[in-house]
């Protein structure tokens, strides 16, 4: 299934490396068309299946909202010396946490499940270009992530007076942080999906590192109350930067003073997130398995 015969260098969209892509990614015109047709077919089925598991949809989308209600009811005061309510600060953290759970957790668990129930094996047996599976997943995850982010922001706005990004520039920041954050989290989730031994263990295996990351990245606890070391370690991972990106889009400019560097660090955020995209992709490309671990 792998090991293409010697052929001219492959060009075109979706040509990556290793196991993520069929060695036979088609060349030339009809090939690109095949990839587009198959990717759109996958995306349609992915979105359809996601929205048909209504309990999963409901709870996925409700989780950040419920967290905001809880946190806003516990911390009702304003941030010291400012007119900004804590709910505004928590919204930025919960947006980041939402991206992590809809992208990382969702994919790590769903792909492990599809490996076990035979979805991946069946697809690998068809002429579908393998890239199409990943494109389909990406489109599904971006759809749910956009929905979840919008619901949290709109709910926060009307329930707690959470302010929308104040300028077009800040909306732009909000957008690229969401897209880059979601992509990096999704790719890491894809790579992570090969780690759990079974589909049943996928959720707990993925949850623990995520929860730790959420705490040290300032999702549930304001980052200012974390030790410098802890927050520094969190800087290795993408989540802290996504949270910082949302702060830069949603909090008044003077909040920048409490950031460790005294700046919003947009360049560094973009670099770290892009770096994690590359790491996730490289690991997934080398380790992605189309059949279950127990099969021989």
């Amino acid at each position: 299934m792998s090991g293409a015969p010697p052929a001219p260098p492959v060009t075109g969209p979706g040509v990556l490396r290793g196991g993520l892509v069929a060695p036979d990614v088609p060349r030339g015109g009809p090939a690109g068309r095949r990839l587009v047709v198959a990717s759109l077919a996958r995306a349609k089925v992915e979105v359809l299946q996601f929205f048909r598991s209504r309990d999963a949809v409901g709870f996925t989308l409700a989780l950040p909202v419920v967290m905001l209600v809880l946190l806003a009811s516990i911390f009702t005061e304003h941030v010291q010396g400012t007119p900004v309510k804590f709910s505004q600060v928590y919204t930025t953290g919960l947006l980041a946490g939402g991206v992590a759970s809809t992208c990382f957790l969702n994919l790590a668990v769903a792909v492990a499940g599809e490996r076990e129930n035979g979805t991946l094996k069946r697809l690998a047996g068809t002429p579908m270009p393998r890239t199409a599976y990943f494109v389909g997943k990406a489109l599904m995850v971006l759809t749910t992530c956009a929905l979840e982010t919008a619901i949290l922001l709109v709910f926060g706005h009307f329930a707690y007076g959470v302010a929308f990004p104040a300028t077009a520039w800040r909306w732009f920041t909000f957008l690229w942080v969401t897209v880059l954050g979601a992509t990096s989290m999704a790719l890491v989730g894809l790579a992570f999906s090969s780690l759990p031994r079974t589909a049943r263990s996928a959720a707990p295996v993925a949850n623990l590192p995520l929860l730790v990351l959420e705490f040290v990245s300032g999702v549930f606890v304001p980052f200012t109350s974390l030790s410098k070391t802890l927050y520094g370690v969190a800087g290795i991972f993408p989540l802290r930067w996504i949270a910082q990106g949302y702060r830069s889009a949603l909090l008044p400019q003077y909040f920048v003073k409490v950031e460790p560097t005294g700046g919003w660090d947009h360049l560094q955020t973009a670099l770290v997130l892009a770096g994690w995209c590359a790491v996730g992709l490289a690991v997934a490309a080398r380790t992605f398995r189309w059949t279950g671990r127990g099969e021989r």
């Binding site: 299934m1 036979d24 095949r34 359809l48 035979g118 047996g125």
Partner: peptide, 26 residues
């Protein structure tokens, strides 16, 4: 050779798997 064959070959043979539990929501 199945190890080297490409998509066109994959389209010429069909596989009926043993005990798949996928696509349940379609």
């Amino acid at each position: 050779d199945p190890e080297r064959a490409g998509w066109a070959w994959r389209a010429r043979r069909g596989i009926v798997l043993q005990d798949n539990q996928d696509v349940v929501d379609l």
